[in-house]
Amino acid sequence: MVRSSIVLICLALAGCQGLPSQGPHADTINKDAGRSAAEVGRRNAAVFDIVDVDSRSATLVSNYVTTALNRRFGIGGGVGRVVIGVGDHLKVTIFEAGSDGLFSTTESKQTNLDIVVQPDGMAAIPYAGSVQFEGKTLEEARKAILASLANKAVEPDVIVTSVSTASRNVTVSGEVGKPSQVPLSLVSEQITEVLAKAGGSQAQPYEAYVTLVRGKKTGTALLKSIIENPSEDIYVQPGDRIFVSKDPRTFTILGTANLNARINFGANDLNLLEAVALGRGGNDLATDAKGYFLFRYEEPDVVMSLLGSQRFHELLNKGLAPDSVGRYPIVYRFDMSHPDSLIVGQTFPVKNRDVIYISRHPAVDLRMFLGIVGQPVGIAAQSAGVYNNIND
């Protein structure tokens, strides 16, 4: 009777798809890496690849995290050639040598004109007609007015000064003291200077994200990174849009960690080892030391550098797809059975919304299987003993 019960239990377990678990084995993650949905055998499965984290890859990722804006936009140089634009308010002062000229009287030899550059880039000057201002420097505009007044005014001279520069505004919004359109001056201005004009960030630098939109390009960086890395404090250009958002940074830790949770950074920086420690480490009785993984949507430049151009395009052909902001799924693998992982892990930065997964050791499934089998076998044996006693 006991033998029959054991056979029935084993057959039942053999027909099951698998044992209860908290997630995939390391072998399953490794096997699915770099495979298309068809190869995985699951429709619409996400395509990803695995990168083993060593000193080179950790340094590459760390360097990119601190230079995101500079890589996308470049820090640039000075303001270069500052020109007049549509909507700019100018003051034009015209002088004449004579007292009976077009712009002079016996009381005054000058006339002041307030003009605003129109959408066609022109503005009207009395007796000179429409003058092109857009795209010209103040000096070039002065010369253009003088040329238009030649043979009309008496030995004219002109001064053009800028009152306001609507064409050189930068829009600053979000978590700042004074959301507004900030006019750029004639000298070079960087992100932190423009933010200061808008009242500064209302969030702590380690939880304030600065997004800069320029044309069709968008870049986001932590304000803390901009402050600490001068190359990230790039020069702002007219028409740029800056948005500051407060987003307390968090990561999620799953698997055989002693604490499965979404956890706040609670600090300016966080590396992999610190993040694992916040999750109270891996369970000694269940963790696979070779199965520490960090799941992330990574910047395309980083993915290209880590995988190489050929591998990257192979994955694109297999269905590798970006998220809504153009980042690609990548899985970083850490082998904690090697001592140097404790060094490399200190230099690998955890980013906002990262998912750390600690896989279970294969022996855990065996132990779980034996536990499941042992319980009904014991019950079956007990029942068999009772049955024999009754028959006796």
Rank of each mutant, 00 (worst) to 15 (best):
Q22W: 04
I29F: 14
K31Y: 13
A33Y: 12
G34P: 07
N44K: 14
I50W: 04
V51E: 10
S55R: 13
L60I: 13
S62R: 09
G78I: 10
V79H: 08
V83W: 02
H89L: 10
I94P: 00
S108N: 09
P119S: 08
D120C: 04
F133D: 02
G135P: 00
G135F: 00
K143C: 01
L149M: 05
A150W: 12
N151T: 05
S162L: 15
E175D: 10
P179F: 02
V182K: 01
P183I: 06
E193T: 09
V194E: 02
G200D: 06
A203K: 15
T218S: 13
K224T: 11
D233R: 05
D240W: 04
D240A: 02
I242Y: 03
T252R: 11
L254W: 06
G255N: 06
A257M: 10
N258M: 10
L259I: 05
N268L: 05
D284E: 12
F295P: 06
P300T: 08
G319H: 10
Y328L: 13
P329G: 06
H338N: 12
H338A: 13
V344W: 01
V350P: 03
K351R: 14
R353W: 01
P362W: 04
P362S: 04
V364F: 12
L366Y: 10
G371I: 13
I372F: 15
I372L: 15
G378F: 11
A380G: 07
G385P: 00
N388W: 15
N391T: 06
